[in-house]
Simulated scan of single mutants.
Amino acid sequence: MGFLETGAKLEKEEKYVVNKYALLIGTETFNDPAISNLGGVLKDVEKFSTILRDSELSSFEVTSLTNPLLIDARRAISDVCIKAMKDDIVFFYYSGKGVLGADKSFYLLFTDSEYKFQDATCMESEFVLSQFRKSECETFIIVIDTCHSGAFFNNNRGLPKSLVALTAGDENQMAMETEEGGVFTNTIIKGLKSDYIDANRDGKITFSELFDYITQQQSKSTESSYEGSPKKWEWNVDKDLVLFDSPRSVFISYQRQQSDLVEKISQSLIKSGISTFVDTKKIRTGDIWKELLERSIKNARAFIIVLDKEILNSEVADWELETAHKHGVPILPLAVEKVTIPALFQKMYGHYNRMDFDIDKYEYSITTVIEHIKALRVRQPEEVAEDKIADGTR
Rank of each mutant, 00 (worst) to 15 (best):
K326C: 04
F303C: 03
T323P: 06
Q255P: 06
E320Y: 09
L261Y: 04
D318R: 15
V306P: 08
I270Y: 09
K309M: 05
L312W: 06
I304S: 01
F251I: 01
N299D: 08
E310Y: 09
F277H: 09
E337R: 12
I283P: 06
V336Y: 02
Y254R: 09
L261I: 00
P330M: 07
I305V: 14
L334E: 00
E294N: 14
Q257A: 13
F277G: 04
F303Q: 01
E320D: 12
P330D: 07
I270V: 14
T340A: 15
V329C: 13
I274H: 05
N299G: 02
A335L: 15
S314T: 13
E322Y: 11
R256G: 11
L261G: 09
V336W: 04
A335F: 13
S259L: 12
W289T: 01
D279H: 10
I331F: 06
G273D: 00
I288R: 14
W289G: 06
V262N: 08
K338M: 09
A300W: 03
E291K: 14
F251Y: 15
E291C: 05
D279S: 10
I311G: 00
K298S: 10
H327C: 04
I283R: 07
L321K: 02
K298H: 09
G273A: 04
L334H: 02
K298A: 11
I341V: 15
L334V: 03
T280V: 12
T285S: 15
A300M: 06
V250W: 03
K264M: 10
A335N: 11
I270R: 10
R295Y: 09
T280K: 15
E315I: 13
F251A: 09
W319Y: 14
R248F: 03
E263F: 10
V316E: 08
F303K: 07
S266A: 14
F277M: 04
I305G: 05
S296M: 04
I297S: 06
L321V: 09
D308S: 15
H327F: 15
S259P: 00
S253P: 01
S272N: 13
T276F: 02
Q258A: 13
S268I: 02
S272F: 02
L312P: 01
A317P: 03
T276K: 03
T276V: 14
G328Y: 03
L332N: 04
K298M: 11
I341H: 00
